[in-house]
């Protein structure tokens, strides 16, 4: 489960990378859908956000677009994904260190 801090960070990343001038982090509901309903983001936002996530967290999108759609469905889903990928990365490093 992702921390509220990570969710907050992702909300800010969305606002900054998509230049959502009218939106504050407080206004984004972590569980609301990001696309179409909710924030009403569109397909170009989706690609811009994936680029921002790649830059900030070093995480690629998935080879399967259905998975991508569920990862990018809400702030919470994206935060959980970032958290899970971090956990995976640290597990892989632990045995070597």
């Amino acid at each position: 489960m992702a921390t509220p801090e990570l969710e907050q960070e992702i909300k800010q990343l969305i606002i900054d990378s998509l230049k959502l001038e009218d939106v504050t982090a407080e206004q984004i509901d972590a569980e609301a859908p990001l696309f179409v309903d909710g924030l009403g983001l569109d397909s170009i936002d989706a690609l811009e956000l994936a680029m921002a996530v790649r830059k900030k967290y070093g995480l690629s999108a998935q080879a399967d677009d259905d998975k991508n759609r569920s990862i990018y469905s809400s702030v919470r889903a994206l935060a959980d994904y970032v958290e899970a990928e971090r956990a995976k990365a640290s597990q892989q490093q632990t045995p070597q260190s």
Binding site: S43, A46, L47, A50, S60, A61, Q62, A63, D64, D65, N68
Partner: peptide, 12 residues
């Protein structure tokens, strides 16, 4: 048949 969307899906 499919129309991939995310860059990594296109590459895949």
């Amino acid at each position: 048949r499919q129309t991939p969307f995310y860059p990594d899906a296109v590459a895949a």
